[in-house]
Write a protein that binds this DNA or RNA. Structure first.
Lengths: 341, 341
DNA sequence: TGTCATAATGTTACCGGTAACATATTGAGG
DNA sequence: CCTCAATATGTTACCGGTAACATTATGACA
């Protein structure tokens, strides 16, 4: 039943030549006689021969594969922000003739598999995303001398790997300034629990703008998920705080905020304006559609991947912490009032 | 700079024993003297030794890894439906001590990588999801005798691999009957372009209910994405067709439909009721929240994985095409009118 | 104390490729 | 027709583990 996979030896034997010639026909065809090359090619085809990757890698070949570490959240195996980054990176890696492989940063088994792969040279480097690094993981990367770059967070704490991120501070300046511009006087900020540079930076931008405009700040902390947004607005409503603008840490949170506001007397954007951060594809699909600060995930990850390839190649990259500029994207949730037909 | 990874030989040499004893200490500790075992364990720890996976696999060990093939769509690297399946499968595989690895069915490189992995015994089997199989892929699976099961589609066309899916026909009966029950008289069906058994089955259920109730059917075909839902309603509006209920092929499409309806005079659920299919996590978060037919992705994928492990173990599974029952989930889009505070 | 089953360890060969070096073949130019 | 460089092919060793078989150490019991 099981078709045994042919080996290079069988191919060689069938042709009455040495397996080295076959190997060369595959990897350095120019070093093989034209006639032999043809015969080899044909019989490899016939027998559906494929060299075993493991044998190749064991013999010292590069695997040309990059691993991505991503931490799922409650609703997404690959949260939209990372998804965009992966798309960008994959597209770029394809041009460099690299494959990509995604690992689940929340699963012990997956983490272990990754370390095994690296250890076996099945993976040449890693891209770890904002939120996906914990101590175990980064320690493993370090101990195994695995080239790695981080995307989405401004620094990687105690681990000195290069980081590529949006400029969160100026991004939040843009967002909150926009809210002020469209007339908000009581702006609330919903951000995440815990300690992340991005939480900190975006809060800082928020505080800055509010101070400059003599407005009273109010920060709510929930999970960075749709549910977190729902919960955030819920807390606001219950606390009786009056507000006419919400700056959410992420589009997911903003989505939750919109969702919760929908079932109240407060209309968006008439009574409350909501703005998010990231510009994930779904931001277009919320009701009303979501204004946000756009991170250029594609560009960021493209850059990150380029850097990673350089490190793998042995070069030290110059810039260790790179910040990309952001764009304000205005949609219905802060300005345009949808026209009802 | 580069810390060379220690090999089993180095460990053995350092202890003055044969590497076989070290290998045994790792894989069959009970066959090694207590004292030796301790010494080996300690020095492995000290030197941070990890056996190379490739060497192991080449020597014939199982890799205990399952590959998942998933076809991204425009908005999601892993569409929500598959995401839920992956979660369910991964949880279950974890118990069986298997790792999971996700491959992108739309990327040639990723497909090639998968085939290489299988060919090298780095992967023991595959779960291919509805929509992810194309000819190239399934041919590769077949040619390499890779155990595979399909999840989400009622049959895999010309390829005879076991399939696990929802019972699409009875599921759609439930959905459309519900629309009738809540008073809809002009029910439209938005489904996908092309030829998939699930398209067909759900359409059939739709026709069945409409015929039984003497209603006029109307089928619109667009992409199975949020955008497709938007486009579908757009077409309806432009064509001047009157409708008071929409049965969408998937929750994503239904989401798009809701989105498009939001900016019209037609209110959901007062004027138009909308129902989807799948019950992805996001269905709770649309505005209004989405009624749908729930597929039990967790159970389905758990079952699929069990079957796959059996096939890998050499057993032929009895049931080749298994259908799981569905549940109607009623939310705001078909019944409850949200209370405005 | 000698014997023999059992536990502990060692030896050999192999998994399937590739690099480095060695040898054989070809053919152009004298 | 011979020589020598270039081209084509072959040989050997190694990557880092594991299974199967071989050998040696241990110790319970007669």
């Amino acid at each position: 039943m099981k078709a045994n996979k042919p080996t290079i030896d069988e191919i060689a034997r069938k042709l009455g030549i040495s397996k080295m010639t076959v190997s060369r026909a595959i990897n350095h065809p120019e070093k093989v006689g034209k006639k032999t090359l043809e015969r080899v090619t044909q019989i490899m085809d016939e027998m559906d021969y494929k060299p075993k990757l493991v044998a190749r890698v064991m013999a010292g070949s590069e695997s040309k594969t990059i691993g991505f570490f991503i931490k799922p959240n409650k609703d997404f195996i690959i949260p939209p922000f990372y998804g965009e980054c992966v798309k960008g990176a994959t597209d770029w890696l394809k041009m460099l003739d690299y494959s990509t492989l995604i690992f689940n940063a929340s699963e012990e088994r997956s983490k272990k598999l990754f370390v095994d792969y690296v250890n076996s040279n099945l993976i040449d480097g890693a891209v770890v995303f904002e939120g996906s690094y914990d101590e175990t993981l980064l320690k493993a990367l370090k101990n195994n001398n695995i080239p790695a770059v981080s995307v989405g967070e401004e620094n990687a704490g105690e681990f000195d790997i290069p980081t590529i991120s949006a400029d969160n501070y100026t991004g939040s300046l843009r967002a909150v300034t926009h809210l002020v511009d469209v007339g908000c006087k009581k702006i609330v900020h919903i951000t995440g629990k815990g300690e992340k540079p991005s939480y900190d930076m975006r809060s800082r931008g928020y505080m800055e703008v509010l101070n400059k405009n003599g407005l009273e700040p109010k920060i709510i902390r929930t999970e960075n998920t749709v549910e977190g947004g729902i919960e955030g607005v819920d807390l606001l409503l219950k606390s009786g705080v009056v507000f006419d603008g919400i700056f959410c840490f992420s589009d997911l949170v903003a989505w939750g905020a919109l969702k919760r506001l929908y079932n109240t007397a407060l209309k968006v954007p008439e009574d409350v304006k909501v703005i998010g951060f990231d510009n994930i594809p779904l931001a277009e699909y919320t009701t009303p559609s979501l204004s946000t600060v756009s991170q250029n995930m594609r560009e960021m990850s493209k850059f990150a991947v380029g850097m990673l390839i350089q490190i793998i190649g042995g070069k030290k990259p110059e810039k260790e912490h790179l910040k990309f500029d952001t764009d304000l994207v205005i949609r219905e949730s802060t300005e345009k009032v949808p026209e009802r037909e």
